[in-house]
Each structure stands twice: as C-alpha cells, then as structure tokens.
Amino acid sequence: MQPEWMAPWLWTLILAVVKTIVVIAFVSLNAAVLIWLERKVSGHMQNRVGPLRVGGPAGILQSVADIIKLLAKEDFVPQRGDRWIWWLAPSVAFAPAFLVFWVLPFGPHLVVEDFNVGLIFITAVTSFTLLSIFMAGWGSNDKYSLIGAMRAGAQLFSYEIPMAMALVAVALATGTLNLTAIVEKQRHMWLIVPQILAFLVFYISSVAELNRTPFDLAEAESELVAGYHTEYSGIRWSMFFFAEYTNLLTSSALAAILFLGGWHGPWLPGWAWLLIKTYLLVFVGMWIRWTLPRVRIDQLMDLGWKFLLPVSLVNIAATGLYLVVVR
C-alpha cells in the first residue's frame, strides 16, 4: 500500500487524515438523518405527519433546508460574557463526541485503534461534555445559562456513578476492557441476557448523559428558555446539537456493542447488524424523549443515588457470586 518514496511518518499522517475525513462524513450524514428522523418521529407520536413539504420522499430534504437556514443565520455575541470561554464551548462539546470514534469498533477489524482500555477511554472522554455545558453557561453571563450549567453539574453527579458501576459489571462478566474482545465474548449469547440490570442502568444513565428528555434539565426550554445555550444562535447553536446527535449515536452504538452482541447476526455483514441495532436504540431514545415528561432535579438525584446505584452494586455482587459459584 505504502509507496516506496514516501516517508513512514508522512504515510501515517495521511492515513490519519483520511480516517478523520471518513468519520466526519459519517457523523455529518448521521446528524442530517437524525434531524429528519427526530422531527418525523415526534410528529407521528403526536398524531401529526412531521415535515413533508420541503421535498424528497417523506420530506427528507428538510435536513438540507435546516442546515442552510442555520448557516445563513445571524450570529450574536453576548458582550458581557467571557468571550474566549463562550467562543470555545461548541468545540469542547464536539471534540469528545468525535474522539469516541477513535475506539468505537464497527466490525472485527473496522476500528481506528483497537485500544485495550477502550471502555475506560469512552467513559473518560464523554464526561467532558459537562465541561462544555459549564463553559457555555459561565461564558454567556446569562442567568438562565448559569442555572442550566449548575443543573448539568447536579445531573453528572447523579448518573456518572451508576453508569460506571454498570460498566464494571460488564468488565467483570467479560474479563476485558477492549471493545472488540467484549463483542467476541458475545458470540453465543448477548450480554443483555445475564446483565439485564446493567443494561437498564446503563441505558437510563446514558439518556441522562445525553441531556435528553426526561432528563433535559440543563436546557428545560419551558423553565430556562434554552438553558446553557440561550446565548448561542445560528451555526454555533447548531454545533451543540451536532454534538448531541453524535453523542446519541455513539452511546447507542456503545450499548449495542456492550449488550446487544455488536456485529453478531446472521446473513448480513457485521457493520450492517451493528448499524441496525444502533439505530434501533436511537429510535428507542426518541420514543422515550417524546413520551415521558421531564423529571425534577431532586427526583433525578434520588433516582441516581437511591435507586440506580444500589441496583448496580447488587448487580456487581450477583455477577461476582455467579462467577465464584460456577468456577
């Protein structure tokens, strides 16, 4: 593959850039599809038809119209805010969502880096989303934004521990933190069967991590105008949503990899199975969003500390006991 005259470092760099471009194209396409899908799903759940008149089958060109509109919108910069922090927040929101693709496998060899501690890498990187919310809230110098950012902090304290404990149970059951190896362990039985509790805890926590209803307390448009992104408009605002849709995709893909057998499935190629499972979970996420009302922040903290955390600890103990007895 590598031409004779080319230095090895240059070749590595070119490969890295090509991988980046492929992932950016995939992420952009995914965001465009999800914009349309979310509007369509919400429409049908509310007994409407959703976007229809823009063009294409079932109004699929709505996404193109949305993107053009967002690009052409005027950009307001709040003068009282902390300009640099405000300016960097969309980047800090997008970078962690994007970095997850570094370790996310789409097939046995279809992965950028087969990282040995991929599971820890993903939990570590996705936590940075909170930093971007806090930067946006603080940098705006707006009361609604600041309240939204403070709530996002409370939310992180509620979901992060149960999520980590659910992943400990996964690591215990499979004995590895490498995502490819975890999928290979599920060749005969999906992990959701023995680890149904871990799956439920992980899924509820990941909805909270994504800041989507019923846990969208940081935005809460009926209480806080738009929460942490009140002061963002046009393309900068859309970058937060780009990051959110990318996070929705990656967390659904992670749930499919950890619990639903990843790329294992009959007839179709592996990546197709993984995409089917991922988008099924994305649809479930939208279903939850348009069905359940928003919880209060103290209810969320009670849910995290007094229900999900004990459940996940019991699950770890049960998994360990099972391993002791079976051996």
Binding site: L15, K19, T20, A72, D75, A95, P96, L99, W102, E113
Partner: peptide, 26 residues
C-alpha cells in the same frame, strides 16, 4: 497515537471551520 492527535485537532477545529463557513454565507 497519531490518529488520536489528528482526531482531537479535527474535533476542535470542525465547529470553528463551520463558523467561518457560515461567515461567508450570512
């Protein structure tokens, strides 16, 4: 980990590139 560094840079600059792109249109 060249890929990681390139991914990190791309993740940071992609929103900024979009903001610049929008500046040409709006």
């Amino acid at each position: 980990y060249v890929d990681l560094v390139v991914f990190l840079l791309a993740g940071f600059t992609f929103p900024l590139v979009n903001v610049l792109l929008s500046k040409l249109v709006r």
